[in-house]
Simulated scan of single mutants.
Amino acid sequence: MFKKTLAAVAVLGAFAGSAFAANVTMYGIIDTGLGYTSTDKGYGEDVNKFDMRSGQNSASRFGVKGEEDLGNGVKVGFSLENGFNSDDGQLATEGRLFDREALLYVGGDFGELGMGRQGELASGNGRYGLFGGKVSPFSTGWSNIAGHKYVMGAGFGRMDNTITYKTPTFAGFNLLAQYSFDKNVKKDDDANTTGVQHGREGSAETDRQYALGATFAAGDLYLAGIVTQTNKQSVDYEGKSLGEQDDPLTVSLGGNYNFGVAKLYVATQYFKDTGLAVEMIQTGKTGTFDGFGLSVGADVPAFGGTAKVLVGYMDAEDQTSAANDVQRYTFSVGYEYPLSKRTFVYGGAGYYMDSYDKGFDVGYDDKASVAAVNAGLVHKF
Rank of each mutant, 00 (worst) to 15 (best):
G83C: 01
I29Y: 14
G132A: 01
G119N: 03
I29R: 15
G202N: 09
R53V: 05
Y364M: 01
A171R: 13
D99F: 12
D361A: 07
E68R: 13
V196K: 15
G35L: 12
G44M: 07
Q90R: 13
K358T: 05
G219M: 03
V378I: 14
Y128K: 07
N125K: 08
A8L: 12
A16E: 10
Y352N: 13
Q229M: 06
A322I: 10
N48V: 02
R342I: 02
D40T: 00
T32H: 05
A59V: 09
I30C: 05
Y329E: 02
V74E: 09
D190T: 06
L176D: 05
L249G: 02
G33F: 04
T228M: 13
K308Y: 02
Y237I: 10
F381C: 15
G124D: 05
T32F: 08
Q327D: 08
E201T: 02
T206S: 06
A375M: 11
D189Q: 14
R53L: 08
G73I: 09
G133C: 04
K367R: 08
L130F: 14
A22I: 09
A349Q: 07
K240F: 03
V11A: 10
Q178R: 09
V11W: 06
I30F: 00
V106Q: 15
K285P: 00
S355K: 15
L70H: 10
